[in-house]
Design a binder for these strands. Structure first.
Length: 257
DNA sequence: ATGGTTGTTGCACAA
């Protein structure tokens, strides 16, 4: 059994104690992090090594930053997009092979607002993600692309679709980018296992949104057909959003045979 | 009505 997890931790420095406790409890084999918000030389690789994990981090300091932490091997690390694709200016994607699975930890740009240049950047980033996969691997392989997509794939992934109409995370253009990933050969593992379940992975810190159930499912584990076939169980650990100093995201897990 | 909170090499900006 291989347990793969994604978690946007909203600063690994601020979250290291919680992340460590959670890892000891849940024992992921591969943990993909987003928004570490630290430079590479600040990443606590020795801390994870002492816990039995190898790790690779792609950071830039104040913002963004992605990592893969694995106890089933970590090889052929690629930071940023694959060679031949216009490199991103931010640290938002890292790829490695863990236990024979080609894993990418992604932090898709937020988009901010549909009339903001950052929204077009988000769409182009997602187009480059498909190009990256085409160059880096094959849909016939065991492939996982996981992280904070900043897109709710369907209305069931939104607490109240009428409140978010015409805003980022739910537009047709963004959802079409999820379709493009599906056309390449990936499936949204959580949704395949739970067609009707309304379970979110992110809640705004403000206004008591978590308590009120006002969330979105924007943290996805997308897997190739062989990974989907191997998947036995998946969930969002919303308990990790509770208690003192939580991230605004909860971890998403999948267990593979 | 555009509220509220958290994080950062913070004092503004991103989410």
């Amino acid at each position: 059994m291989v347990r793969v997890v994604t978690w946007n931790v909203n600063s690994l420095k601020a979250r290291l104690e919680r992340v460590t406790e959670w890892m000891n409890e849940v024992q992921p084999d591969v943990l993909c992090l987003q928004e570490t918000k630290m430079a590479d030389d600040a990443f606590p690789s020795l801390h994870f090594e002492a816990m039995g994990y190898e790790s690779a981090h792609f950071g830039q300091g104040r913002w963004n930053g992605v990592a893969i932490i694995s106890k089933i091997g970590l090889d052929n690390v690629v930071t940023n997009f694959a060679d031949g694709i216009e490199p991103d200016t931010d640290a938002r994607i890292i790829t490695a092979t863990c236990g024979g699975i080609r894993v990418s930890s992604v932090y898709v740009p937020n988009g901010r607002a549909i009339d903001d240049p950052h929204y077009e950047y988000k769409l182009s980033w997602l187009d480059r993600l498909v190009a990256h996969l085409q160059r880096d691997t094959s849909p016939a392989a065991d492939v996982i692309v996981t992280g904070d997509f900043n897109i709710a794939p369907a209305d069931i992934d939104v607490y109240d679709p009428s409140k978010l109409a015409m805003s980022t995370h739910v537009t047709t253009a963004e959802r079409d980018r999820i379709r493009n990933l599906e056309q390449w050969g990936l499936v949204d593992i959580f949704r395949e296992h739970h067609p009707e379940q309304k379970l979110f992975s992110w809640w705004d810190y403000r206004s008591g949104d978590f308590h009120m159930g006002r969330g979105l499912r924007i943290d996805l584990i997308m897997g190739s057909a062989s990974v989907h076939a191997r998947s036995r169980w998946t969930t969002v650990d919303r308990n990790a959003r509770k208690g003192p100093s939580p991230s605004d995201h909860a971890p998403v897990l999948v267990d593979l045979d």
